[in-house]
Structure formats: structure tokens, C-alpha cells
């Protein structure tokens, strides 16, 4: 237990901290003070008059909502043996679909929010369908097609938001603000961006955990990912499970985009943040693709992000130290935990 689990985790933490230390030291800012500011950005403590726990948790919980959903999206696909690096594009499609529903008039008030979230998830699932269909029917590598669909989504949403769904009231490339009834309430009144989308995300994580580990469907899906030939031989409908897992994956990424629109931004705009789709890869890998563990890894990554952003805001140090640290973490986790079994001598 200690050698296989605890030691690698400790080593990983040390390596990431070392990378952070190096990057901060190279900026010439005092180390102790910098780490204190990162800690403040991640937790709110030590608090000051200008920045306290409310500010920190608003940012952390907001990021955590998106990272958890995109992390779950990547994880469920990987459980079925598929690498969905198209979460960014699926998120964009979900976001613009939710913004479109949110700005419609004449939708019954009670239905407006659930409809926006559902259509957002459906748009994400739709965007994941072609890549998995190409995989199952044509043997095309899903990584290549999801990359292609990321860019197609980028330009398609850009065209939509500049030509078709643009707010007629202004010149800016953005949709109108969504209706009040289509908004997710914030977690606290004094929050600015963290909404009850977090609740949806955590419930989804727990639900996925049950489905993956306590149902036949989950068993067959995991068997497909572990060894498709063996699962085939045992009679599992592997192609079906792959398609379903990928649709679920795209749906979760689309839901992330919809929640960002309904809970935080209240509109879609040019340059809508989609990099959460890539961050989801780190969340899933760190959690070993386990939905419940993903809650913890999503929190960790959000804390790291918020800490780095706070350091940037306070001292001007480049916030990209979080991106570098994340890359180091992915490489470490992949090299230590995800080694492929050696097949040849």
C-alpha cells in the first residue's frame, strides 16, 4: 500500500511543488510570500480586507463545476476505451445551444432552465456522435476526429454568434442576455459566478459512480475499455457501449457549457472559455477515471488554478505557472500510473 499508492502520490506532489517553486523563483518574487498568496487564492486564508474566503471559494467552486463535468466527460469515455479530447468543442456547442434556448421568448418559465440545460447537453452529445460513429464503423481514431470537431465547433459557434444569434441590440459578437427564468441561482448571494451547477455536477459524479460500478451496463462499459476483444468474446455489445459512453461524455461536456451560460455568464460570446475541456483531461487522469475521486481532483485543480490567478492578480506573475504545473502533473500521472503493459520483449 505504502509503496504502490502513498509513495507515488507524495512524489507527485513534491514534483509539482518543485515545478511551481522553480517557476515562481524565476520571476524573482519572494517564495514564501508567493505561496501564501496562492494559498489565499485557493482557500481565502490568510484573509485580508480586500480578499477573503468568499472571493476564493466563489472562484474555486465555479471552476470546480466545469472541471468536474469535463473531467467526468473524459473519464467516462476513457472507461469505455475512448479518448475524448473533443470536450472543448462539445462544451462550446452546449454553451451556444443553452444560450439560444435561454434567449427564446415564450418558453414556460418553469421549463426554461431545465430545457436550456437539456438542450445544451444534447448539443454536446450530438457533437460527440460523429467521432464515435467514425470509430465504430470506420475504425477512424477518435482522437483525430474529436480534434477536427473541436475546430469545426470553434468556427461554427463563431459564425453563429456573429451572424445568426447575435444580440440585435449591440455590435458586440455576443448573444443577448438569457431570461431570468433560464438562470441557475448562485450558491450564495455574495457569490458572483459559482452557481448550483456545482450541485448538479456532484450529483452527476455520484450517479456515474453507481452506474459504472453497480450496473451491468457499467460493467460492460468498463470491460469494453479494459479489453475490447475479450469483452466481445464474452458477448458484451462493445460497439453499442462505446457509442453510449461517448454520447454520455459529449452530453456532460455540453452540460458544462450550458451551466457556464445559465449559471455564470448568462450569454454566449466570441472567445467563450473552452479550455476547461482540456483541463478535464488532467482531472480524469488524476482521478484514475473514477467518478467519485474526480470530485476531489476537480477541486485540487481548481484550487491550483484559482491560486495561480490570484498570484497573477496580486503580483503580476504570469498565471501560466498553473498550466505548466498541470502539464507536469499529467506527464507524471501518465508515466507512473498509466503505463501500458509491455506486450513485446
Amino acid at each position: 500500500m505504502f509503496r504502490t499508492r502513498v509513495l507515488p502520490a507524495l512524489l507527485g506532489a513534491i514534483i509539482v511543488l518543485a515545478a511551481l517553486t522553480l517557476l515562481i523563483a524565476a520571476t524573482g518574487k519572494p517564495l514564501g510570500e508567493s505561496f501564501q498568496i496562492i494559498l489565499q487564492g485557493a482557500t481565502g486564508y490568510p484573509r485580508t480586507d480586500a480578499f477573503g474566503p468568499v472571493d476564493a471559494w466563489d472562484s474555486v467552486l465555479h471552476d470546480m463545476t466545469l472541471l468536474l463535468l469535463t473531467g467526468l466527460a473524459v473519464a467516462i469515455a476513457l472507461q469505455a476505451g475512448l479518448f475524448n479530447i473533443g470536450a472543448a468543442g462539445q462544451l462550446l456547442m452546449g454553451a451556444i445551444a443553452a444560450a439560444w434556448i435561454g434567449t427564446l421568448t415564450g418558453v414556460p418559465e418553469r421549463l426554461h432552465l431545465p430545457l436550456a440545460l437539456l438542450v445544451g447537453a444534447a448539443a454536446g452529445a450530438l457533437w460527440a456522435f460523429a467521432p464515435v460513429w467514425l470509430k465504430v464503423r470506420r475504425g477512424a481514431h477518435e482522437v483525430i476526429s474529436t480534434i477536427m470537431f473541436n475546430y469545426i465547433a470553434l468556427y461554427l459557434t463563431h459564425w453563429l454568434v456573429t451572424e445568426r444569434l447575435k444580440d440585435p441590440a449591440g455590435d458586440a459578437p455576443q448573444t443577448a442576455v438569457i431570461a431570468d427564468a433560464a438562470r441557475l441561482p448562485l450558491l450564495r448571494e455574495d457569490f458572483l459566478q459559482a452557481s448550483w451547477g456545482l450541485g448538479i455536477a456532484i450529483l452527476t459524479a455520484l450517479g456515474l459512480w453507481l452506474v459504472l460500478y453497480r450496473t451491468v451496463w457499467g460493467y460492460e462499459t468498463r470491460a469494453t475499455g479494459a479489453n475490447r476483444d475479450a469483452a466481445d468474446a464474452a458477448g458484451a455489445p462493445t460497439a453499442r457501449r462505446m457509442v453510449e459512453a461517448m454520447l454520455l461524455s459529449g452530453g456532460l461536456a455540453g452540460l458544462a457549457g450550458a451551466i457556464e451560460v445559465c449559471g455564470s455568464q448568462y450569454r454566449f460570446f466570441e472567445g467563450f472559455p473552452s479550455e476547461y475541456g482540456f483541463d478535464g483531461i488532467a482531472v480524469a487522469l488524476l482521478a484514475g477515471n473514477h467518478p467519485a475521486v474526480a470530485v476531489v481532483s476537480a477541486w485540487l485543480m481548481s484550487a491550483l488554478r484559482s491560486g495561480a490567478y490570484h498570484l497573477h492578480a496580486e503580483t503580476g506573475a504570469p498565471k501560466e505557472i498553473a498550466v505548466v504545473a498541470q502539464a507536469v502533473l499529467i506527464l507524471y500521472v501518465a508515466a507512473v500510473y498509466l503505463r501500458k503493459r509491455r506486450v513485446e520483449g
Partner: peptide
């Protein structure tokens, strides 16, 4: 023996982070 995709994703992130930094 890392997965080729994972390593590629990490390298893209590393390059984006480091070059901007």
C-alpha cells in the same frame, strides 16, 4: 510506456504554458 495521446496533450500544455510564461 505512456499513452501517446496523453503525452502529446501534456506537451501541448507545457509549450503553451512555458512559452507564454
Amino acid at each position: 510506456r505512456t499513452d501517446h495521446i496523453v503525452s502529446g496533450v501534456a506537451i501541448n500544455l507545457l509549450a503553451l504554458g512555458l512559452s507564454t510564461y
